[in-house]
Design a protein around this nucleic acid. Sequence first.
DNA 1: TATATTGTTCGCTTGGTGTGAACACATTGT
DNA 2: ACAATGTGTTCACACCAAGCGAACAATATA
Lengths: 263, 263
Amino acid sequence: MRTIGYIMPSQNSSRTVNATKTSFEVIEALRELDGAGITDLANHLDMAKSTVHSHISTLEEMEYIVKEGSKYEIGFKFLRLGEHTREQKKAYRMAKPIVKQLAEETNERSQFITEEYGLGVFVHRQIGQNAVHTNTSIGKRIYLHSTGAGKAILAHLPPDRIQSILDTIGLPAQTQNTITNREELYQELEKIRERGYAFNKEEGMDGLRTVGVPILAPDNNVFGAFSVSGPTYRMNGERLHEQIPNLLRGKANEFELKIEFEL
Amino acid sequence: MRTIGYIMPSQNSSRTVNATKTSFEVIEALRELDGAGITDLANHLDMAKSTVHSHISTLEEMEYIVKEGSKYEIGFKFLRLGEHTREQKKAYRMAKPIVKQLAEETNERSQFITEEYGLGVFVHRQIGQNAVHTNTSIGKRIYLHSTGAGKAILAHLPPDRIQSILDTIGLPAQTQNTITNREELYQELEKIRERGYAFNKEEGMDGLRTVGVPILAPDNNVFGAFSVSGPTYRMNGERLHEQIPNLLRGKANEFELKIEFEL
DNA sequence: TATATTGTTCGCTTGGTGTGAACACATTGT
DNA sequence: ACAATGTGTTCACACCAAGCGAACAATATA
């Protein structure tokens, strides 16, 4: 079975390639601006037009970006690379139907996230009912300390890893309920480990509550987390504290067994 | 309404940034090798270890790649960029539920593809029944001339664009039935324009038949195509020639109207 | 412990990146 | 129709830094 290691934020001060950084700055600007022209980019990035031009030409020649009318936009080749990471690991593929089931059985928003560079990353997401926007924010990064799935993951990382994450990321407040104190967080994580699942009561966003459950690989490393979130007025009482946690724990156990035997 | 232009393979011989190319070569090698170490990459790419090292360090510092045990792998930041292109254009988002409906109503594989650099790109894909591998090959590129959705798109590109695509890509044979002759292809495209949909009878893959229907934007530019594919033994007779084409044309008309009014 | 292999660091050289200004081209307004 | 404005493109130049190979450190393997 494949080891699922922790992704450390490397503090390498090795020699780096400047031009590559510039290219990715251009790419990220294209994302932020939802497409842009050369002059736009040059202004936005405070670079010479000629510099932007050469990078854009390169990326276009490599077919990573695309000229759409008068704007350049990010092309589908990035989607290919991105889907690769999602599809390559079998466990990620197997997580998708579970997310679907969770969304259908609860009629709430359900997601699978994993950890990268101290943040949570949406790998799968589905909205209950027959909603349309099912993919929005795939790949987006969120804080671990202020989200249900995030706290579930955080609780099962090795202590030194937790510390290093808190050192680099900190505990920025998202709402009035966000845990911003380390001691408090450590106690919360301890409770999560005991219970086997995490609550998030409007700590990341007002009016939104979540239940998150960690997925542990056979080597006891945390591999990711499932979660179900909904508005506070629907997420309370027995449904929040019994029904949904039980559902999630069930799926999690099922999934962990699957990983163990199929991977 | 937003103009949906054609994506031309630019024959720019502008100045390009070499280092960026090298970085993407490294990234693509990581994809091909499903992750690799520095020495592996250096051998595979025939570059100095130190060169690979500096590029890897750069990409890791920017959090685009990730060290997983002893290998470097492509990280989720690419997924973020890729999903952006899928989600940014409302029409792409709206295409997803249609693909789902097509898959459910036919119990076959259904997909939405668009054109980029003379090739078809999978934007959405869904398998009938309750299959698991629903996302495989999202972002993958396919030939236009040997696929159902591809021919539907090709048929509605401007003549000069068709020619330039055929000049650069050619008509490589995929099976014995692939159209490899330009004249024959032009006649086929004419038939597709008359009918409003395209057939693919084992021209791309043995045993696989497809019906593809083009989606035209209000400005009459082709925006993409839906298709439904299945094994020859299920795709024949009235189902192939009446039922599925009618279903597809219906969805296409519905979708084109939606685009016109909602975009 | 010895040996092979991988990753990392280091000068060195050359070529290429980044720049601003000048140019061509398109778009807009009068 | 013609300025006028803004866009993209090209160019020569200066200086940095990308790529290299060899030596070194850190692993993994025998």
